[in-house]
Every structure is written in structure tokens, then in C-alpha cells.
């Protein structure tokens, strides 16, 4: 299981949990697993998120590996100028 940290307003939609556990070995499995376990997160996940895995930020790459020890943090989808 991977511990995934949610930002505040997402936590409210995940039964108030700041951190949820998801069975996942890569980014795609993580995102799919989140929606399965917490359907209320779906609108935000569809609008897009960025995911910090061990301090590096990923937006899209499904195959990005995630280990059980990884620090995983969900972030609003980042934009730049």
C-alpha cells in the first residue's frame, strides 16, 4: 500500500482523511485506485492534478514507479507563465 497525502479540500471529500492508502505500483494505478476508493475525488482528478513522488513533481507519466516507501503528495495541477 502507498500512503497518499491529500490537500485540505480533497481530504474533506475523502471522509476527512489527510492521508489515504492505495494499492499502486505506478502513477496510473494510483490515480485509478483513488477514484475507486473515493469516488468523490473524481471531479478534481478529472480536472487534473500533479503528483509529487519523492519530492519530484509528475503530471502525466502513468508508468512513473511508486514504491511502498515513496512519499506521495497530491497537488493541484500546476501551471506556469
Amino acid at each position: 500500500m502507498v500512503a497518499v497525502r491529500l490537500w485540505g479540500s480533497l481530504a474533506e471529500l475523502a471522509d476527512g482523511q489527510q492521508t489515504v492508502e492505495i494499492e499502486a505500483a505506478n502513477l496510473r494505478q494510483l490515480l485509478d485506485g483513488l477514484v475507486r476508493a473515493y469516488p468523490a475525488l473524481k471531479p478534481q482528478l478529472e480536472r487534473g492534478v500533479s503528483v509529487s513522488i519523492d519530492g519530484k513533481i509528475y503530471n502525466d507519466t502513468w508508468a512513473t514507479p511508486i514504491s511502498e516507501e515513496s512519499e506521495v503528495v497530491l497537488l493541484n495541477r500546476l501551471v506556469g507563465g
Binding site: 509529487s52 519523492d54 503528495v73
Partner: peptide, 15 residues
């Protein structure tokens, strides 16, 4: 100051 290993205010730990 944040440094390597600091848990940032937005969540992730800094390299």
C-alpha cells in the same frame, strides 16, 4: 529556512 529533507508547506519533502 527550508533545506533538504524539509517537509514543504505544500506537502512534498524537498531534495
Amino acid at each position: 529556512a527550508a533545506r533538504e529533507g524539509t517537509k514543504s508547506s505544500y506537502g512534498p519533502t524537498y531534495p
